[in-house]
């Protein structure tokens, strides 16, 4: 078994899990709940195994390094983070309907990864740092939370169309099976808060790494700047909530806008702008 096979299998497991989670929601097929959970768990285990195996393989090739150094590896790790974060949410809130809005992100990430080159490349000197690992891990845990928060934001906006003030328009409608608006709003907020802490840590570890490699902790390169923009968006969302009592649709939209900024930071900057970061070559 190679890591590529294992990760290929992961992609299918996440696809299958996404389909089943969506089916649970769309066809009210509660009975499929266990199957969905097992599929995502299976995907997660394969994902974990794939990352571990890839790590081992890189050592066997004599260019050993943690598998977090290029676009492919970061997408694989992104999917892993989304999966574990979602599993945690499902365990904590005992609700599988969130899966329909969160698990597809894990699949998309793996699908995108399969479009980039999976070759294990040796690390250039600047990337040979433990701070890099800390940087990637913290950023992607944050990004995963923001992905799920965006999914929850979409869920909230859909759900809100079925409610008139506080009254259900039609208690039998499909959307009425989703958790109540207050519950979604609360989980979205908690998820954003969690992501914000990790994004902050991600920016900080990135700065420390840059300082140890180049002697500058902040150089306003496009990737850094975009991560700061993302940080401002979420800081704005949090303050609007804490002090102005914003909630509901506005926070749902901000969760979505924030995630668009995340995607741009992560993906857009590499392909549309130029800078120091090395992921673009993937």
């Amino acid at each position: 078994m190679t890591s590529s096979q294992l990760l290929g299998f992961t992609t299918f497991a996440y696809l299958a899990a996404s389909i089943v989670y969506i089916a649970i929601f769309v066809f009210r097929a509660k009975k499929l709940g266990l199957a969905a959970s097992l599929l995502i768990l299976l995907g997660f285990l394969c994902n974990t195994g794939g990352i571990a195996l890839r790590w081992v393989e890189s050592y066997q090739m004599g260019v050993g390094h943690a598998p977090m150094s290029n676009m492919y590896e970061s997408l694989v790790f992104f999917a892993w983070s989304i999966a574990i974060f979602y599993l945690f949410l499902e365990f904590k809130f005992k609700n599988r309907l969130i899966g329909a809005f969160a698990v597809p992100f894990a699949f998309f990430s793996m699908a995108l990864a399969s479009l980039t080159s999976p070759d294990i490349k040796p690390l250039i000197p600047a990337l040979q740092s433990n701070w890099l690992i800390a940087h990637v891990v913290t950023c992607f845990v944050g990004y995963a939370a923001f992905a799920v928060a965006a999914g929850l934001g979409i869920m909230y906006l859909l759900r809100s169309t079925s409610v008139d003030g506080v009254k259900e328009k039609n208690p039998d409608s499909l959307l009425a099976t989703l958790p109540g608006l207050k519950v979604i709003d609360d989980i979205t907020h908690k998820t954003v808060v969690f992501g914000f802490l990790w994004l902050s840590a991600g920016i900080i570890t990135g700065a420390v790494w840059a300082n140890s490699a180049w002697g500058t902790y902040w150089s306003w390169d496009p990737k850094e700047t975009w991560s700061l923009i993302t940080w401002f968006v979420y800081a704005g969302a949090l303050h609007a909530r804490f002090t102005k009592g914003w909630g509901g649709k506005r926070i749902a939209w901000l969760a979505i806008i924030g995630f668009v900024a995340v995607i741009f930071t992560y993906y857009g900057v590499n392909y549309l702008l130029s800078g120091l970061h090395s992921y673009g070559s993937g």
Partner: peptide
Amino acid sequence: SVKLALFTFFVLAVTSIIGTV
């Protein structure tokens, strides 16, 4: 005021884009 903070967050985020483009 936090209104000013929200305004500054917004303006900083938007103007920061310029230098990346």
